[in-house]
Each structure stands twice: as C-alpha cells, then as structure tokens.
Nucleic acid binder design. Structure first.
Length: 575
DNA sequence: GCCGTTTTCGGCCCGACTGTTTTCAGTCG
C-alpha cells in the first residue's frame, strides 16, 4: 500500500516527539515538526512529486536528509530511523505527550524513574503517591497530573467551528458587558476559519482597573481554572471546551490579535522577517530597540514588516507571506459574492421545506437562483426520487418559475454514483436537468484504484455537472475515501466539469488544501450549502471560510456568476 | 535538521504562568 502525505507527516511528528523525550537538539526537533506541518498542509501528493522526478529539497524546510526519509517512507512504508528510536524508547511514550501539562522532560523523568509508559501507568503512579518523590516534582504537581489526566480522558475531541461559534458569541457578550472592557474578539484557529477548533482564544482590551479577568474565570459556565494571571487565563468550560483569555491595553490590540490569531508557524515566519529588519515582534507590539513602532492595529503590524494586511484565513505559512511581499495576495471570495446555491434538498427527498419556501428564502438572501437537487432513487433512506417523481418535480419547478420574478429555480438532482461508476437515473432524464450533481453515498471503502476509476467514469457522463463532497469524509466520524484526488482534479479540468466545496460543517468537502489544488489546476468550485431546510443556507458561512482558506477568489467560484453566465458555463459541460 | 545579498558554521521566535528551584525549569500558546 503506497504511503501518502498524511502518513509521512505522522512519521515525522512521531520522530519529533521521541527526539524531544531524548533531549535532542531542539532545533533538530523543530525541523521534524516543521516538516510534518509543511507536508500536512501540502496541496500536492508527495508520491506524485517523486514520480515526476521533482526535487523535494525545493520545499522550504526539506533538505538532504528529510528528502531521503520521505522517499524511504513512500517507497517502503517504513522509516528505519523511527524504528531505531522506538527501540530506545517505548513508542507509547508519545501518547503521554498528548496530555496537556506533560512535556518531554516530565515524560522522560516519569519513564526513567517509575517505568511509566502509558496513561494507565501514569494514573497508577500518581494515585500511589510515587510521583511526588521524584526530584522536580511535588505534591501539587502530582495532584495536577491526576487532574490533567482526568481532563484529558474526558476531553472532547476538537469541535466543529459551527459548534464553537455560539459558545464564542456568548462569551464575547459576557466580556463586553464588563465595565472597562473596550474590545472583545475571538482569535486563534476559530478566526482563521479552521474546520475544527481545539480551544477558543479570546483577546480583550480593557482599562487597567477592569474586573474582566475575575468575571471571566468565575463565569457560571467555567468548570475549572487551569491558569490565571493578571493578563492571561486558561479555563475549561462545563462543555469541556478550553478557553484562553488574553487582556491587553488598547495600544497593543493589533499585536495581541495578530499573535493570538496565529497560526504559530505564520507568527514564527513574521518574527523571523522582523528580525531581518532589526525589529522584535511580541504580543505587545513591534519594537526597534525600546521604541514601539506598531501595535494598535494588525494592518500596522504588517506594515511595520513591509507587508500588506494578510487575511486570517491565509495565515498558515503556506506561501501567504511570500505572496504578500510580491503584492500577489488573492482577493478572497466573500459570502456576499454568491449569487445562488447549487445544492439543496426539498421535502420531496430528505429535506423539510416546500419548493416555494426554499425559493422565497433564497430570494430573500438576494440570490438570483437556487438549484433544487434532491437525492436519486438509490438513496432509499433519503427517500430518493425515481424518474417519475423527478419528472413531476421538474414540472412543478417550471410552474413555479412562471410565477417568480427576478429569481429562478434550477432543475437538478444529486444523483448517486453507483458502485460501477454509472449514474442512478436514465440518461434522457439527466439531460433534461440544468444541474446533475454526482455523489458517492455507498461503497466508501473500495480500493483506491477502483474508487478513483468509479468517480472518473461518472464524471465522463455527458450530463455531469459537478462532483459533490468529493472526499466523502465526515469530520470526526468518517475518514475520507481512499482516492487519487489529484487525478480527479485533473480530470475535472480536462472534462470541463466542476467540484464542490460542501458547506455542511461536518463535511467541509473539498477541504481547504484540496480546494486550493483545484483552483491551481483551473477547476471552478461550487460553494454549496447542501441545505435540507431553508435555515441551512446559513451553512454557507462555513463553506466560504473553507474556500477562503483555500485561497479562492470570486472568479474561482462557480456560483458567484450571474444566471446567464452560469447557464453558459453549464452548457459547456454538456457533450 | 535547515539555511545563507554577512554566513557552508552558527545561528534558529517570544513571553506568561506554575511550582518548586532559592534564581529557574517546564510547559504552553
């Protein structure tokens, strides 16, 4: 089984963990971590790059040694260096590093002195009071470790950004009501629009005498206070979500917001750039010696290092700093750019609303069009439409369009791609539709070659418009299908069809990096709500964020086109 | 382990909070 980017990144992360426990040169550890992060965020397949004879050393942070290790992992599925490390230290130690509060030094000390190799060992040692005996540890640390462990075991995995949003908004309301508070905003991965967030980072500006810190940590939703100082606090909510609060003076707001928005690797790159200019960047501002040269706004922070403002969604150190320096940042698509939605369900299949209610809600959002795309017959659990029912719906849409003014319902269907790659409805019927969405809803576990061939075949159908939720993943519950996605993206370009960025928060599919790869290939993407009721159009907020993270501009998104432009593009997919 | 309009060697981002250290290490973001 050939290895792919994610596996290579996992090997490098594990090496970094084990090296860190070994007390290796921290910069060597960082080199592995940086490489893991780079590879995780790469829009291209390493295996394919190697096949094409590209030099991996052209990737920033990859040199002679790591390049060889990547090739070794891709070709053999193993990494001898990792296996060697695992002979010296139990691989399970890296699991201990996942416990917040336990770092490499403590893990190593616990292992060497008490033979603690797993979470169970750790709990047993703490309960037996053996940890407090170790040098550098004390009674409080021992109790703290037990608490950390309990918190870790009961922790929720990263929550979807859509779930975190109402929590964040409640907290902001609370903070803004505290006397002396000027601004309160969310930073961190939430502000960058990541599909899931591990915690919430809040930045507040307040007068020195504001009781904001006290009010925050003693808020009724707070279950536990992990740390609290005059400017910074970490708490865990009853919902198990961790929240960090940072309070700064107004003059430092931009610097603090920039610092806490991250990402970490973007910040490091900005700081290195600042260093080269004789400047120092921290959360209080940008300094030349003792003199503050910026800090009040993010725009000023970027200007101080000679860059234009960089949108938070781009701050992943995936080329945005270089693009900014060249004046080549993308003008990211916005929700207001959308003229309609090309994927939604009515009560005819598994949606909740009638066509006229969906149309009214869409028109109220200022859109020009909405495609009705109920499921096809194979998806029985969703009450998929057979040819007769779909024909009836098409007639109903014609009638409705006769009454609508300045708005059009498009006739579509989300057709199942069957196991053999054929589509679930007769060709003649599909050709009478405006939009034919191909989608996989079954046989997610076919081998890579068959799964890829199945989808390529479906895309070749003469009526095919775009591929819905191409990876098939459900965040946190179902992994992406094993697919040659670069090949599917290339095929979409050659065949002249489109791909989807599905905005359902549990899907967000294509994900950011793959959406960017499609853009680079010149494939248009439809950012769709996949609404099952008129309220689900709000999902587009998350889809647009994901699209922005993929560097998509208005011109890259199919449903930013006016209806006549859209019809022209749709006609070109037919053959 | 990577990298280079000053470098092929000597650098590599920066500060807050906690606990046990009597002056700072460990961890985190």
């Amino acid at each position: 089984m050939p290895k792919h980017n994610a596996e290579v990144a996992a090997v490098f992360s594990k090496i970094a963990d084990l090296l860190e426990i070994e007390n290796a040169n921290p910069f060597r550890v960082r080199a592995y971590r940086n490489a893991a992060r780079l590879i995780q965020g790469l829009s291209r397949d390493l295996g394919e790059m190697v096949e094409r004879g590209e030099d991996l050393r052209d990737l920033p942070g990859i040199g002679e040694d790591l390049s060889k290790k990547i090739v070794e992992i891709l070709e053999t599925g193993h990494c001898r260096f990792l296996e060697q490390l695992e002979k010296q230290e139990p691989p399970a130690l890296t699991e201990l590093l996942q416990v917040p509060g336990l770092g490499p030094k403590r893990v190593k000390a616990l292992w060497q002195a008490l033979q603690v190799e797993s979470l169970e060992d750790l709990a047993a040692a703490a309960r037996a009071g053996r940890i407090r005996m170790l040098p550098g540890f004390g009674e409080k640390t021992e109790l703290h470790i037990l608490e950390l462990l309990t918190a870790h075991l009961s922790r929720i995995p990263r929550v979807s950004i859509a779930q975190a949003a109402p929590v964040a908004e409640d907290l902001l309301r609370l903070l803004r009501s505290v006397p002396g508070v000027q601004e309160a905003v969310v930073a961190g991965s939430f502000r960058r629009g990541q599909e899931t967030v591990g915690d919430l980072d809040l930045v507040v500006t307040a007068r020195l005498d504001s009781p904001v810190m006290e009010r925050f940590v003693h808020h009724e939703d707070v279950a536990e206070i992990f740390a609290q100082g005059p400017t910074r606090a970490t708490v865990v909510l009853r919902s198990h979500l961790q929240v960090d609060l940072r309070v700064v003076a107004a003059e430092s707001f931009g610097a603090a917001l920039h610092y806490f928005t991250g990402s970490k690797s973007h910040n490091i790159a900005i700081r290195r750039r600042a260093q080269g200019l004789g400047l120092k960047v921290n959360e209080y501002g940008i300094f030349r010696g003792k003199e503050r040269v910026a800090g009040e706004t993010e725009t000023a922070v970027y200007a101080a290092v000679g860059l234009p403002y960089i949108e938070p969604e781009l701050r992943e150190n995936r080329g945005e700093i270089e693009a900014a320096a060249l004046g080549k940042l993308p003008h990211l698509v916005q929700e207001e750019d959308l003229r309609g939605d090309l994927h939604c369900h009515s009560a005819a299949s598994d949606g909740h609303d009638r066509l006229e209610d969906l149309a009214a809600a869409a028109q109220a959002r200022g859109w020009e069009y909405l495609a009705i795309t109920d499921h096809s017959r194979a998806l029985r659990v969703a009450n998929g439409l057979d040819p007769l029912r779909l024909r009836r719906q098409m007639d109903e849409i014609d009638l409705l369009n006769g009454k609508l003014r300045g708005f059009t319902l498009l006739k579509g269907c989300e057709v199942d791609i069957l196991e053999d790659g054929s589509l679930d409805l007769p060709d003649a019927l599909l050709r009478d539709l405006d939009i034919v969405i191909g989608a996989v809803h079954s046989h997610f576990d076919l081998p890579r070659a068959r799964q890829t061939a199945r989808i390529l075949k479906a895309m070749d159908h003469s009526a095919f418009t775009f591929l819905a939720h191409p990876s098939g993943r459900l965040i946190g519950s179902r992994p992406a299908m094993d697919l040659d996605l670069p090949r599917i993206i290339r095929h979409a370009r050659e065949r002249g069809v489109f791909l989807e960025v599905n905005a359902q928060p549990q899907r967000l599919d294509l994900p950011d990096i793959q959406a960017q790869a499609a853009k680079e290939e010149g494939v248009l993407l439809a950012v769709n709500s996949d609404a099952h009721s008129r309220f689900d159009f709000d999902h587009l907020r998350w889809g647009v964020l994901q699209a922005r993270r993929g560097w998509l501009e208005k011109k890259d998104v199919l449903n930013t086109r006016s209806l006549p432009e859209l019809r022209t593009l749709l006609a070109q997919t037919r053959r």
